[in-house]
Simulated scan of single mutants.
Amino acid sequence: MKFLAYLIYIPLQIIWLPLSVIGVIMVGYGQLVVSKKLGVSQTAVEIINGRWAMDVFGLRRDGAARTLAAKIPNNSVGGLWLTFFPLWLVSRTLGVQLLYPTLPKPEKAAIANLVPSRTIVFDEIIEANVAGAAQFVVLGAGLDTRAYGTLKLSNIAFYELDQVADQAHKREHLAAAQIDSSHVRFVAADFADRNWINSLLATDYDPAKKTIFLWEGVTLYLSEQAVRATLTALIESAATGSVIVADIYAERLVKLTKSKAVSWSLELTDEEMEFGLDYSTDAEERLGQFVVSQGLRLGRNQFLGGNHEKGPFAAIVEMVI
């Protein structure tokens, strides 16, 4: 069936190519240029567009992401449709996922499909902890929409922490998209500031209640010192049994972003990548050592891209307090 899918897709994509190029330009302009003008994160757009694609292609339902993606001014859903239409048409007619978005086995995951691959793993770890949790705290929330989906039906208190400009941008367009956010406590915080935890503690957040801390797509933008300080702050301010669910990337991925081909786009919105672990050998041991060195217990974890000769490019890890 995949062979047939490619037989249909390739000539269709060749015919459609000029429109795909226009779509890429439209999306890129919004993500890079408009984000810079607004002073907000451009990588957050990349994440919500990945979630948009997963919903549109039927890989993961996320109506809030699909609706919000259409409302933020630093994005172009029209451009996304121009970019992905041939792939979507093949997916809908033959039920075959080609190229993007796809969900390969974790060990075969590639950087090109990072967002879908990591999203599913995060979902699984979160789902395994929801029943026993009283609070759900999203650190560096960006345009994440988990608090506006099925999790909203659980008896959990929601908190989203992010930098002032990014949070204001999100709240404005949640309202424009008519997505109810009244159940979420929004807290302004900068993880580069060692006192950020005080902002959370100043709310009705209860350190005595078991909490899920979601820290997705953030650690690689911080220094190692800031990552460790954040983990220490959480340990000191959360109940025993709480979990921190985070992605920790490989040094080789961080180094890749230092190339001129990648770094210029990140520099537009001051989002330079810094922190990663050496997964080239004994990746599980390296990850475990890091977690234990922080006084945490290693829980569920999944490496992405483990079949690569240089080791996995990322790990999604549950760290238990």
Score class of each variant (00 low, 15 high):
L68C: 04
L82K: 04
R61I: 12
N74W: 05
G241E: 08
I48V: 09
M1I: 06
I212L: 04
D166V: 14
T43R: 07
A229Y: 01
P106V: 15
N155C: 06
K170G: 07
A141V: 13
W88P: 02
L161Y: 11
S259Q: 12
G241A: 05
S20V: 11
G299Y: 02
A229D: 11
P116R: 00
A157R: 15
L266N: 10
A246C: 06
Q178P: 00
H173D: 11
L139P: 07
I212P: 00
F290G: 01
R60I: 07
E127M: 09
T232Y: 04
V218W: 11
N301T: 08
G142H: 07
M26T: 00
S117Q: 13
A233P: 00
V21F: 12
L253C: 08
A175G: 11
S154E: 15
L214G: 02
A133H: 12
K255G: 05
W52A: 04
N75W: 06
W196C: 03
A64C: 13
A44I: 05
R171H: 10
R51Y: 06
A177F: 12
S181N: 14
Q225D: 11
Y159I: 05
I48N: 04
A238R: 05
T203C: 13
L89M: 15
P86A: 10
G305I: 00
K108R: 12
D193M: 01
D206Q: 13
Y6T: 03
L7W: 03
V21I: 15
V130R: 05
I10N: 11
A53H: 06
Q178D: 12
K37D: 09
D144V: 10
T150F: 06
T203M: 14
L143D: 10
L201Y: 04
A70Q: 11
Q289F: 01
F275P: 09
S20I: 08
T93G: 02
M26V: 01
I111W: 07
D123S: 13
A44N: 05
E274F: 11
A165D: 13
A53F: 03
T93W: 02
D180L: 06
P11C: 01
T119H: 12
G149V: 02
N155E: 13
W52D: 03
F85Y: 11
S20Y: 05
I22G: 01
E160D: 13
Q42P: 10
I321M: 15
F186W: 14
A64L: 11
E160T: 01
D193A: 12
I25N: 01
A176D: 11
S263Y: 05
P106N: 14
A189K: 08
Q294M: 09
E274V: 08
